[in-house]
Simulated scan of single mutants.
Amino acid sequence: MITNEPTVTSPSSQIWQWRGYPIRYQTAGTQGSIVLLIHGLGASSDHWRKSIPVLAENHRVYAIDLIGFGQSAKPKPSESLNYRFETWGQQIADFCREVIQAPVFLVGNSIGCLVALQATVINPQQVIAVALLDCALRLQHERKLKGIRRLTFPWVQKLLLSPAIGHFFFAKLAQPQVIRKALLKAYARHEAVTDELVEILLKPAQHPGAADVFLSFITHSKGVLPEDLLPEITCPVLMLWGTEDSFEPIAQGRELAKFPAVKEFIPLEGVGHCPQDEAPELVNPILRKWLAQHEQPEASTI
């Protein structure tokens, strides 16, 4: 029997060597413009599992595990490799140049948004446009801490830098019930917090080195903010934001939409911090329309 149902494209998982470290990425689709999906803190390319097959119907889709997350390497932080947006931005820029070898659309969620912006600043010629889903505002940044938190938060960070205390703290976090509780706070649609989702976040957190990666990042209150990067962006930017995001308030997100590069800001009603996983039926059509609007069929190689 012949049906008109679309073919579901299953992604393939591959390894790319970056600075001597294995980096896992997924790819799907054989035609159309190229899209690179970038996950948020503690997540991986699997957090895009509800978007990859849909976007791959008309596009070549890549989703990457940033170094330190997912199935990618988790080397101990050092002077030559630290877990900062500059590092991840360079990883994405290098991936685009070495693996994709053509201009791309970048789509990020949470801290993945800042990574996408940083990669665009590093090499603007390789990026066609950027989509930001609930961009991390970095509310723990030293420039945003106010009142008593400005005094207490640095002390908390110093405590976590102690290996014994920091690793004990991370071990308590890397538990199924704790991850589920955090997801229930991040997701407005609680039915989207499934056992599969908990496992996606739990397994990488149990890898050797995961604690050092996490502690390196959360004890750093300096570096770039989205409002530092957006003025340097010249390509079109789309912003999607869950109205019920308890981590990154939409009111502050709307302030970012005032930068000239942001061409459209779309609120997602009743949705939390990870809309691509929580409400793919809303996000995927918006992304497909946006990709079609900015498609460059004869884009030259980088």
Rank of each mutant, 00 (worst) to 15 (best):
T3M: 10
E5A: 11
P6Q: 03
T7L: 12
P11M: 08
S12G: 11
S12P: 07
S13L: 08
I15Q: 14
Q17R: 14
R24Y: 11
Y25P: 08
Y25E: 12
Q26L: 15
T27W: 13
G29L: 07
I34L: 11
S44G: 12
I52R: 12
P53T: 10
R60C: 11
A63W: 09
D65P: 13
L66A: 13
L66F: 15
I67Q: 09
K76Q: 14
S78V: 08
S80L: 10
L81D: 08
L81R: 10
N82F: 09
A93N: 09
L106D: 04
S110A: 13
V115T: 14
A116S: 14
L132V: 08
L133D: 05
A136D: 12
R138P: 07
P154A: 11
P154L: 09
P154K: 09
L159F: 11
G166I: 05
I179D: 00
K181L: 04
L184A: 05
A186Y: 00
E191P: 01
E191A: 09
E199D: 08
P204F: 00
G209E: 03
S216Q: 07
S216N: 14
S221V: 06
G223W: 02
D228H: 05
C235L: 02
V237E: 01
L240G: 03
E244S: 09
F247I: 07
E248T: 06
I250G: 05
R254P: 02
E255R: 09
K258Q: 13
V262C: 05
E264Q: 14
F265Q: 03
G270W: 01
G270N: 02
G270L: 00
P275W: 01
A279H: 02
E281N: 07
L282Y: 04
N284E: 11
P285S: 06
I286H: 06
K289C: 11
L291F: 12
Q293N: 13
